[in-house]
Write a protein that binds this DNA or RNA. Structure first.
Lengths: 129, 129
DNA sequence: TTTACTGCAAACATTTTGCAGATGT
DNA sequence: ACATCTGCAAAATGTTTGCAGTAAA
């Protein structure tokens, strides 16, 4: 556990949204912390490998990370306004997905499901304006 | 409608799998057709915009395209072995997704669902070996 | 003839890698 | 002391763009 890693872990742990490596690097630069791009990428990779972070992709195919306590299979709900990410377990969906696959003779090995929209907080804020 | 575009459309129309711009370019090169990368990207973009192609992302976040007759909302079933893509409509899933979002105060604007596994044909081939 | 498409090369953005030097244990 | 991590700069990748020339209408 080195200095740069500690910094990265601390800053990552405080985030509730989906962020890119670039977001983090900007955040560091804004606070005067000088941490190399490569180190950020390597550490995020490490954390994702350890199951601490989840790796998802945004609409441009770029990698985003989110803190993720949950190790078992789950999905994401992402707010388009604030970036917040919630995890979602949905056994009914899993079953239905499996069923739909079988119906076509398909062996479903994995699936990607992500809900994108506006979270409660951002909807409330919209209403207030 | 120019020569290069005609070529791209013809080759694309014959594919049943999910392919990248790179795949297409390779295919052209293999047949001695010289079409610039930029033209391929631009034309695929055009076709995607016109609704003829669907743009999806692979596990690395790279763009893949699939022929897509269906204009309305749908999902994809993709074979990890042969790359084949089928479209999938699943009203039950849509409803359940909407419901799960609402349960959390979330306004679901869009969602991504992709099933990845092995298609009937590839499973049969596995059995034969 | 006019408009729009092509191909190249350069630009871009994100992510990875090689390596010399710094740091943690 | 030793292993490993860091930062830099360069490379790799996938994709986009500017521009001069070419082909289509």
């Amino acid at each position: 556990m080195t200095g740069p890693r500690r910094n990265i872990v601390v800053h990552v742990a405080l985030r509730t949204d989906a962020f890119s490596a670039h977001d983090l690097i900007d955040q560091f630069r804004a606070r005067g912390l000088l941490i190399g791009r490569a180190t950020v990428f390597r550490t995020l990779d490490l954390l994702a490998g350890a199951g601490v972070l989840d790796r998802i992709h945004n609409e441009h195919g770029h990698q985003l990370y989110t803190v993720c306590a949950q190790l078992q299979h789950h999905h994401h709900l992402r707010c388009i306004a604030c970036g917040m990410v919630q995890t979602l377990e949905a056994p009914l969906l899993e079953a239905e997905i499996q069923r739909l696959g079988e119906q076509r003779g398909f062996e479903v090995q994995e699936h990607v499901l992500e809900l994108i929209g506006r979270c409660e907080t951002c909807r409330a804020e919209d209403g207030r304006k």
